[in-house]
Structure formats: structure tokens, C-alpha cells
Amino acid sequence: SKDAAQYVYDEAQKGVTQVTVNGVTFKFDNWQKLLKYAQKLLN
């Protein structure tokens, strides 16, 4: 959902490398990768 994507995006902006959405945890090597993933979700 857009809300989940926005949440992931906001978390990535904080510099975190993992985020949990609806009980599913996504882990990334660095926050830039998390940010890229979030941007994909938002598009």
C-alpha cells in the first residue's frame, strides 16, 4: 500500500537499514538501498 511505502520511505530517511511492515521485516546492507526500495514502492 502507499501508506506502507511512505512509512518505509520515512524510515529510510532516518538512516535505518531495516524496517518492519505488516509483520514483515526487510533488511538492507545500507539505508540507501532501503531508500531505493521505498522509492520503487512509491512509484
Rank of each mutant, 00 (worst) to 15 (best):
S1V: 10
S1M: 13
S1D: 11
K2T: 13
K2N: 10
K2C: 15
D3M: 10
D3T: 02
A4G: 05
A4H: 07
A4Q: 07
A4W: 09
A4K: 13
A4S: 10
A5S: 06
A5N: 07
A5V: 08
Q6T: 02
Q6M: 02
Y7V: 15
Y7F: 11
V8C: 15
V8I: 13
Y9R: 03
Y9M: 09
D10C: 13
D10H: 05
D10I: 15
D10K: 04
E11P: 08
E11C: 15
A12M: 11
A12W: 09
A12N: 05
A12D: 12
Q13I: 12
Q13T: 09
Q13N: 11
K14T: 12
K14R: 08
G15L: 13
G15Y: 13
G15K: 10
G15S: 08
V16Y: 06
V16F: 07
T17Y: 09
T17L: 09
T17N: 06
Q18L: 12
Q18N: 07
Q18H: 10
V19S: 04
V19M: 12
V19I: 12
T20I: 06
T20Y: 02
T20C: 02
T20H: 10
T20G: 05
T20L: 14
V21I: 12
V21H: 10
V21M: 11
N22K: 09
N22Q: 12
N22R: 08
V24G: 01
V24F: 07
V24A: 04
T25F: 14
T25N: 04
F26G: 01
F26T: 10
F26E: 09
F26D: 08
F26W: 07
K27R: 12
K27N: 13
K27H: 12
F28S: 03
F28E: 03
F28H: 02
F28C: 12
F28N: 02
D29W: 14
D29I: 14
N30G: 09
N30E: 06
N30V: 07
W31F: 05
W31H: 01
W31M: 05
Q32I: 06
Q32N: 06
Q32K: 04
Q32G: 06
Q32S: 04
Q32A: 06
Q32V: 10
Q32C: 15
K33I: 07
K33H: 08
K33T: 08
K33C: 11
K33A: 05
K33P: 02
L34D: 00
L34K: 00
L35E: 01
K36L: 08
K36T: 03
K36E: 08
K36S: 06
Y37L: 15
Y37E: 02
A38P: 00
A38Y: 04
Q39M: 11
Q39F: 07
Q39A: 05
Q39W: 12
K40L: 11
K40M: 10
K40H: 08
K40G: 02
K40I: 05
L41D: 00
L41H: 01
L42V: 01
L42S: 01
N43R: 05
N43S: 03
N43F: 05
